[in-house]
């Protein structure tokens, strides 16, 4: 097990290993997205209160979940990068920051589009929206720090440190903002025996959530492979790879 992890932290091995996964991840993502979107946008019943506008949750909720999940992945990778100093985990941090910022922006934009017909306003300073916005700022901070240090290995370590500091702060920020102001509906109860959402609406949401998660892994693998090629472009195996293709 550990030997395999060590092998995985070598850029060359990782590049080949991730390459084998790419078609599978792409296939699963496309299938799940098509199924989830069709199910959610066409098959699922109309909401009796919100009408058709609720259907945006099939994009909004998965991306909001992902925005936090990716941050945790980034912080864990950052911790690994700081402790074991493996190259791959350093790359994961910088690539996660970009992907996470994208999911956060998507969650904010879809949330605003949904807020207009439902709350009557694009933006309100409610706790969830605000902490999502702050999360976006934290992602921007990591990206900005990473891109302003020239030596990419030092940059990745600094970004890892910031990600770890950020993950300690996120719960504090979240709770402080929650006490400060709240209007957003409470977290949905989806796992217990009496879920607050009807299964006919819930299932497509879960399909979409899974699709987003696999999409994230797919995207991450592509970006890591790109970054490996660009960082290792002077090594022999990359030269050989380019010569072959």
């Amino acid at each position: 097990m550990w030997a395999w992890f060590h092998k995985l932290s070598s850029p060359k091995y990782y590049y080949e290993w991730a390459g084998k996964w790419l078609p599978w991840l792409a296939g699963i993502t496309v299938i799940l997205m098509v199924v989830g979107l069709y199910w959610g946008l066409v098959v699922a019943p109309t909401d009796y209160q919100q009408g058709e506008s609720y259907r945006i949750i099939y994009i909004h909720v998965p991306s909001a979940w992902m925005s936090m999940f990716v941050y945790v992945v980034m912080a864990v990778a950052g911790f690994v990068a700081l402790v074991w100093k493996t190259k791959i985990s350093e790359i994961v941090v910088s690539e996660c920051a970009v992907i996470g910022a994208m999911f956060t922006a998507l969650a904010l934009i879809t949330g605003m589009l949904w807020g207009k017909p439902t709350w009557g306003t694009y933006w309100t300073w409610d706790a969830r929206l605000t902490s999502e916005l702050i999360l976006l700022f934290l992602y921007f901070g990591v990206i900005a720090l990473y891109s302003s240090i020239e030596d990419k290995r030092v940059a990745a370590k600094a970004a890892s440190m910031l990600a770890v500091v950020g993950v300690v702060n996120i719960p504090i920020i979240h709770f402080s903002v929650t006490w400060w102001n709240s209007l957003h509906q409470p977290n949905m109860d989806i796992i217990s025996e009496n879920p607050s959402m009807d299964p006919s609406m819930l299932w497509p949401l879960l399909v979409m959530a899974t699709a987003f998660k696999i999409y994230f892994v797919w995207l991450l693998f592509i970006r890591i492979r790109n970054e490996i090629i660009s960082r290792e472009r002077t090594t022999n195996w990359v030269r050989k790879l380019i010569a072959e293709s």
Binding site: L145, L162, I173
Partner: peptide, 16 residues
């Protein structure tokens, strides 16, 4: 850059 990194982390202090 410092402002970008630090100000979001200052938010809980500001709120409380």
């Amino acid at each position: 850059l410092l402002g970008l990194l630090v100000l979001p982390l200052y938010i809980p202090v500001l709120i409380f």
